[in-house]
Write a protein that binds this DNA or RNA. Structure first.
Lengths: 321, 321
DNA sequence: CACGGCTCTCGACAAAAGTCAAACTGGGCG
DNA sequence: CGCCCAGTTTGACTTTTGTCGAGAGCCGTG
């Protein structure tokens, strides 16, 4: 910044244009600058979240399917992204929708817990900018030195950056080699504080991982494919914030879980709004597990997944009756 | 509506345009309609609040003056509209700012109390549309059959309409001719309920009236100019939600006040966020009274008024020390 | 069943907004 | 002191968007 006439002018231009509804040339003459500059300021205003343009996501909850799912699974709200016909890329559609929903759920002063994964990073990537200085984004689990761009700390920081919020990173690895070390590290004041701060969050955002060789845990070297297969045969159904859960959504009793530094599931459940986003159709069982474990209050999925969930719920209640 | 393709199409067009960032012609070909129709849908989407465009009002709190006022008067937040040089119409500027601030303060699920007056109606008039179905707007005081468009019920309904919220009107006159009748009416279940519901509001919006012959109370025939002058000599300093207050912000002990049907000041004070907006420079004393009475937590005023308030506060503390 | 009245739709034009390369500005630095 | 750099500003051009009047489909009514 040369002399930073910026900030103030950007605000003024945005105000005159968006709040007063002046045309760009009128704004330009009011501020004694060229219209081209006004256009540039306005772009910056949009990019930095000084102006907010948001579209209601109602369309996606209005679906009867969404209502039925809310009832069947007792969720607070469900959004369903269409996948029929000519939607270019359903997974992008889900991410865009999730980003909008997320922004709709954030309130001033919130503390937000964010996990990691391809889905979470994709959401961060398409999220529009906002100006929420009094918001804090905290990382829900330890770090993983991955060659990918969706490392836990990157997910947290990118979302914090988009919101103009404070980002609170976790300075510990996700998995350690021994249980003792994990226990010792968890007892460290810095880590302990971070972990106990999780339940004070007002909103959480995560996806759920599959228990297979394609899992990020395997790709990042936290587990070998054969260990993963073992866990699967021991009842592993999904991955939440780096932890393995069983079909009931409980932490699986295994060495791996004991070596992980991450928010406890009870802390996650203490968060009022838990937004779960699932893009891949293959994550049906992991998602069921997360829902069974009460780890989800708000859900964003594609239409096919929604239908499967509903069919499953119907079959289950039928069997029970 | 011919066959109401509207709602759904408007939503879809808005989504593709604003959330996905497509151009209008791309949206048009996706939806198999002409670009002209897309443009029309988008306008409707903006007009109905399906898309929200809001600009941060930070610029107006950033002022040092605003900070000083917050401290001096212990208010939660102050917004100051510039009045210097080439601002076309300061009172419109204040109304536009107040509308933005108001929208920024509203949260989902809120219950909002609204009083009446020219200022409040002007704010409603420039307020942009939003889509907040779970919000309720309640009228804070009884009605006045005025020949103006800013009748209490109209203020309430207009704001409710803009927000797409529920409007709860008050079916009682503001002033009755005898104290007995007022007392009896206040005891009526319907009215009682409405009045007791006021303290459950999360947000209130009102201005403050002056005690002079120009007051709406006089114009609408609730008081004669000479009665008003009398009240003034008895210590009346301002009007809040149809009630006369003294310089300390307490209800003035007078027949008029006993004949009024309106929210009690204690109920108003029970509302967490009380947004007071003052446009006219002449309302200095009424505003002081309202602040003294703790009826204001959030304030929107013009720069001159802000300066006067600050000078007054400085003089007062100086005298005290 | 023909008639207005109604809204929705579209093509064509006018207006506004976006973009880009070139000119400019005000420090920092050799 | 003059040069360079990075960010800003601008005029001219292109693209995108807004708008208007005409036409088309639909319904209730006479």
């Amino acid at each position: 910044m040369a002399i930073r006439p910026a900030e103030q002018l950007i605000h003024k231009a945005a105000w005159l244009y968006y709040a007063h509804g002046l045309r760009q040339d009128q704004v330009a003459s009011q501020l004694n600058i060229s219209r081209a500059s006004v256009a540039m300021y306005l772009r910056k205003a949009r990019e930095t979240g000084i102006v907010n343009i948001s579209t209601s996501t109602q369309l996606f909850t209005d679906d009867v399917l969404a209502r039925k799912l809310e009832d069947a699974l007792s969720l607070d709200a469900v959004w369903i992204a269409p996948e029929n016909d000519h939607i270019a890329d359903p997974s992008t559609e889900i991410a865009v929708l999730a980003a909008s929903v997320f922004l709709e759920l954030v309130k001033k002063g919130d503390r937000i817990g964010v996990a990691w994964g391809r889905t979470v990073y994709m959401i961060a990537d398409v999220m529009s900018y906002a100006d929420l200085q009094d918001v804090t984004v905290v990382q829900l689990c330890g770090n993983l030195g991955a060659p990918y761009s969706y490392r836990p700390d990157q997910c947290t920081m990118e979302i914090a950056r988009r919101l103009n919020a404070k980002g609170l990173n976790f300075y510990a690895p996700l998995v350690l080699s021994t249980e003792e070390l994990a226990r010792a590290l968890r007892a460290e004041p810095v880590i302990r504080e971070q972990l106990s701060g999780v339940s004070e969050c007002d909103l959480a955002l995560y996806s759920v991982g599959a228990v297979d060789a394609d899992s990020h845990l395997v790709k990042c070297g936290a587990l070998t494919p054969s260990e993963m297969a073992d866990l699967r045969s021991q009842g592993a159904a999904g991955v939440i914030a780096g932890q393995i859960i069983d079909a009931e959504g409980k932490v699986l009793d295994c060495s791996y879980n004991r070596r992980v530094i991450s928010a406890e599931l009870a802390s996650l459940r203490a968060i009022a709004r838990r937004l779960v986003v699932v893009q891949e159709d293959s994550k049906f069982e992991p998602l069921l597990a997360a829902i069974a474990g009460g780890l989800c209050t708000h859900l964003v999925v594609g239409a096919r997944m929604a239908q499967r969930l509903l069919d499953h719920a119907a079959a289950t209640t039928e069997k029970a009756s």
